[in-house]
Structures are given as C-alpha cells and as structure tokens.
C-alpha cells in the first residue's frame, strides 16, 4: 500500500488535518459557546502545526545563526508567519470570550440552542 507509507511519512500533516476536522466537528455539533471558541482554537492550532511542519527539514536546528559552525537551519519563514498567526488567534479568542461574558449576563446561559429558544419566545 503506497498510500499508507506516504501517510506514515507525512504523519505531521495528517495529524494537522485530523485536528482541523476535530475542531470543525466540535464547532458544528456543540451548542456551548465556550466549546465553540475552544474548537476555533483547535482549528487554528492545527493549521499552525501544518505550517510549522512545512518549515522543518531533517536534522535542522532553530534559525539562530552561529558563526563558524556548519549547521543545517530550519526554514525561518513559516515560524515567523506562525508567530503572527498565534497573536491573531489570541486576539480573536479574547474578543469572543468577552462577548460570551456579556451574553451570559443578559441571557443567563451560554448555550446557543437555549438562546434560540429564548429568542423565539420573545
């Protein structure tokens, strides 16, 4: 089975994709808002994992240059991009949580389905 051997070679990518789908599943099926925010973070982290894995090469070290030593360095670009991505994800999470705080105050629940019921009663 060639595909299996390819998948085992690319296990980092496979794990990233599976994590992405797990995040998507949580986001689609759970009605608890905090779980949705966590799922959003899982999705983002999975993509970050995929991105960072692209930058790796066998035997490579972190790209901090040391003079006079012969070292193979990893690709610095994906790492640099992901630093940005992580901060973006943190900001979105903070904002989503602050909305949830206020939703909890006014509806007294953090469950989407219950809120839908409350709204249909109005």
């Amino acid at each position: 089975m060639e595909i299996i051997s390819r998948l085992t070679e690319n296990y980092f990518y496979l794990v990233a994709v599976i994590l992405f789908v797990i995040g998507m599943h949580t986001m689609l099926t759970h009605s608890n808002m905090i779980k949705k925010v966590i799922a959003m973070n899982i999705m983002d982290s999975s993509v970050f994992l995929l991105f960072v894995a692209i930058g790796y090469r066998h035997g490579a070290q972190a790209p901090i240059i040391r003079e006079g030593v012969d070292i193979v360095y990893a690709n610095p670009l994906p790492g640099a991009l992901i630093v940005t991505g992580i901060v973006v994800a943190v900001s979105v999470t903070a904002y989503a949580l602050s909305i949830i705080v206020k939703i909890q105050r006014s509806y007294e629940t953090v469950d989407c389905d219950e809120i839908c019921e409350l709204r249909s009663e109005d």
């Binding site: 808002m33 959003m40 904002y95």
Partner: peptide, 19 residues
Amino acid sequence: RECLEAGFKYLIMSAMGTG
C-alpha cells in the same frame, strides 16, 4: 442583546472561514 448574539455568530463563522 441581539447584537451580542449576532456578533458572536458572525465572529465564529468568519473565524471558521479564516481557518
């Protein structure tokens, strides 16, 4: 409070989109 709920829905959907 409708704004909060609508904004949250929008935020989650667009977070999924950017993901």
